[in-house]
Computed example of a mutant assay.
Amino acid sequence: MIFISGTLSSSFQLMLCCGILYTYAFGAVASYYSIAIACTILPLIFVAVFFRAPETPVYLLKKGLRSQAEMSLKTLRGSQYNTTRELHSLQNELTKQSQGQTSFAKALNRREAKYALIISLGMMVFQQFSGINIVIFYSSKIFDAAGSTLKAELCTILVGLAQVVSTLVSMVLIDRAGRKILLQVSATSMSICLLVLGYYFMKKDRGDDVSSMGMVPVAAVIIYILLFAIGFGPIPWMMSGEVLPADIKGVCTGIAVSLNWTLAFLVTFSFQMLTSTLGNSGTYFLFAGICACGLLFSTFVVIETKGKSLQEIQDELAGKA
């Protein structure tokens, strides 16, 4: 499981991208109210299907329901799967955790816990401050403002499709190439694309003739999306699960996710204010600079977790490896 953890963890980002593409495609041909209804149908389907999902074996073992935990494992692994060894391993891990249980504040005082939390929160910060939600939510306005020759609706569908395709590519690469290199490529490429976008709007806003550059913003946005989705899209989500120690993982993952969506709201909410204050070009140059900082963070702070067990990761964070 260690060697496919990246692929499995990337499925979260893939579902996000599929949802965005679904909304873009439906929004191109339907009214606002129809989109709302269409987006309501999917959660209802999910609720109906999820009733058949098994409870997690770890939760059942915590509750002392060993026979139900065995049934859950067989549902997840297959009816012919021998659950004895895995159940024994899970039970030993839970026993070890309960014996070494300590307060959250004390657990967070360990070097590896602090380092892991810095990585988790830092990744969420740079994911949102890369400007991804601005590009997604305002893509049609970006293309309209740029004077693109393609219809804004078609451009946004291309953006959504680029996200899905590149996330699929990321799922293949992430357990082969590693996390750090994908983050570094992602941050570098996003910074360049935003610089190109900023340069285009700088020329346009000062009255230069940009009629021959109509495809530049479209290409910059699509490449930006492609490279975001192979690195800073999926990897921050999986990093929390990979680097955080087991005894603080639940609380710290909640903190990281809350920070992510809070920043998503703040960045999206402030976009209009930023463009009014800094102009279109200044706004994109600002986010390009933040992506460059994300490159430095990925290079000097984030550790490589590819193919490593949780214990090996914790030893490296603690400075023992």
Rank of each mutant, 00 (worst) to 15 (best):
M1C: 07
F3R: 14
G6F: 05
T7D: 00
S9P: 01
F12V: 13
Q13N: 13
C17Y: 04
C18G: 06
C18K: 02
A25T: 12
A28F: 08
V29A: 01
Y33P: 03
A38S: 13
A38N: 01
C39G: 04
T40S: 15
P43T: 00
V49H: 02
F50H: 12
F51G: 12
R52Q: 14
P54S: 09
E55N: 12
P57N: 06
K63H: 10
G64T: 07
Q68R: 12
K74M: 15
T75C: 09
Q80Y: 08
T83H: 11
R85P: 00
R85Q: 14
E86W: 06
S89E: 15
L90W: 00
L94K: 04
Q97G: 05
S98F: 05
S98C: 00
V125E: 00
G131I: 01
I134Y: 03
V135I: 15
D144L: 11
A145Q: 14
A146R: 09
S148V: 15
T149F: 08
T149W: 09
T149S: 15
A152V: 13
C155M: 11
Q163M: 13
V164K: 05
M171A: 15
L173V: 03
D175G: 04
A177R: 10
G178N: 06
L183G: 00
A187I: 01
S189N: 12
L194I: 01
G198M: 07
Y200S: 03
K203E: 12
K204M: 11
R206I: 14
D208T: 01
M213A: 11
M215I: 12
P217I: 10
Y224Q: 04
G231E: 07
M238F: 11
L244E: 07
C252A: 14
G254D: 05
A256F: 03
V257T: 14
N260D: 05
L263T: 07
F265L: 06
L266P: 02
V267H: 07
S270P: 07
F271S: 11
M273W: 12
N280L: 13
T283I: 00
F285V: 08
L286F: 13
F287P: 04
A288L: 06
C293E: 02
C293L: 15
V301T: 12
V302I: 15
I303L: 09
L310V: 12
Q311R: 06
A318V: 04
K320N: 02
